[in-house]
Amino acid sequence: MSDTPSHEAGKSIFPKWIKGPEDFIGGLVLMAFALFALWASRDLQGMHGFSFGAGTAPRMFAGLLLALGFGVMLMGLIFEGPPLQKYHWRGPFFVSLAIVSFAFTIRPLGLVISAFASFMIAALGTEETRWMEAIIVGICLTVGCSLLFPYALGLPFQLFPRFMIQ
């Protein structure tokens, strides 16, 4: 919000006639989303008589998004704009991995293992993590969550792996 975007210094990989790559690519991707939505709603029923079918509104708004995406792309083509911002892979990758691993382990392995493992994976998201510290905080967090959610809030959480309970 208040930070200045970290624009990639140096040469742009885009040809000169694309003046604002950020908007150009942004518009293109939105158009792709719109086309995908059009494809996904292709076999829904359209208008019958005066009334909308299930597919009318999705197609209508997908069409609108397609047009708007085209507009944004055109703006990127015509007007001088910022270059693409730099992407980092480490943060997004490990945070996503932590989320996915949580989703896959919460049912079979229970909250304790799942939360702790995901915590450690997420902690890989930056090279500044100090391991001892992270392990201690991870354990505290796991204990805290194991008390908070199932006991204090009474939500149905399984704490330990299924095979250990049975």
């Binding site: 945070v95 932590a98 949580f102 989703a103 896959f104 915590f119 992270a134 991870g138 959610f149």
Partner: peptide
């Protein structure tokens, strides 16, 4: 922040899961 962000990730994940008990 290096300690805060993994905690927030886990807390969010647990929160979302508990809404519908759905890993998806």
């Amino acid at each position: 922040y290096r300690l805060m962000f993994p905690s927030i990730v886990i807390f969010c994940a647990i929160g979302i899961y508990s809404v519908n008990n759905a890993p998806v």
